[in-house]
Amino acid sequence: MRAEARVVAEADGRGGTRLAVLRGESPLLLRRTGPLVDGWVTVHLVGGAAGPLRGDELRLDIEVGPGARLEMLSVAASLALPGRPAPPSVLTVTASVATGGVLRWLPEPLIAAAGCDHVVVTRVDVADGGSLLWRDDLVCGRHEETSGAVLADTMIRYAGVTLYRHELAVGPGAPGWDGAAVLGGGRAVGTLVAVGADLPRPGIAGPDAAVMPLAGPGMLATAVGDDIRAVAAALGPLCRRSRPVPLLTPASG
């Protein structure tokens, strides 16, 4: 299956944000949710089919214009599944954030079901003066299940310079991924990259979590846990917006 989705958020000129483009196809369906609050617009990814399955090629492009504020969430965890023998499923997410723009990418976790073979390629460009909060959580296998193979390949650039370049490989084919250097038997891992304004404070964020100042202007919080709750406990508080987020009320779209 191939699918593409695209979101373009622009400042509406009145201190708010409007969605110039909001287009998706199953399984990458997008819905604008909730009213405009404090200039923010919220878009949810709504899973339109099981998957991704091996062989899927999915692409999501996000563009945040100058002064626009976009928050991307998802209604449920995504579950990478084995499917038929085929090349890995690939989800490519690209995002650009213009000067004065803000993007919050806070989807529910990705779950690597046994036998899956999934690649997530993330490429984010933040212009000088743009802000970003980018979270990716991964759960290695469903309950009491061995993990499938996932490669998360992430590059975040700020003002034209590579700020954060990271790959995480788990499951069969990733030697030592459950050893004490990588996940140490932990089944869940989360990362949160913050760039621009409102960076979290560096320090220890839990028994297996830390908030680290990057070499460039940004911060990475990483947490490893036995399950996703441990990761959420460490990273969740760092994702709060300065103002309360409105209750989720999915709109028809």
């Binding site: 390949d153 590059m155 370049r165 990271h166 790959e167 995480l168 490989a169 004490a180 250097a181 990588v182 996940l183 140490g184 932990g186 891992v189 990362t191 220890i204 297996d208 979590a209 830390a210 680290m212 990475l220 990483t222 947490a223 490893v224």
Partner: peptide, 12 residues
């Protein structure tokens, strides 16, 4: 660019 989360966290 393959990373190891526990090496990062442990070092901190």
């Amino acid at each position: 660019a393959v990373g190891a989360p526990l090496l990062d966290i442990g070092a901190e």
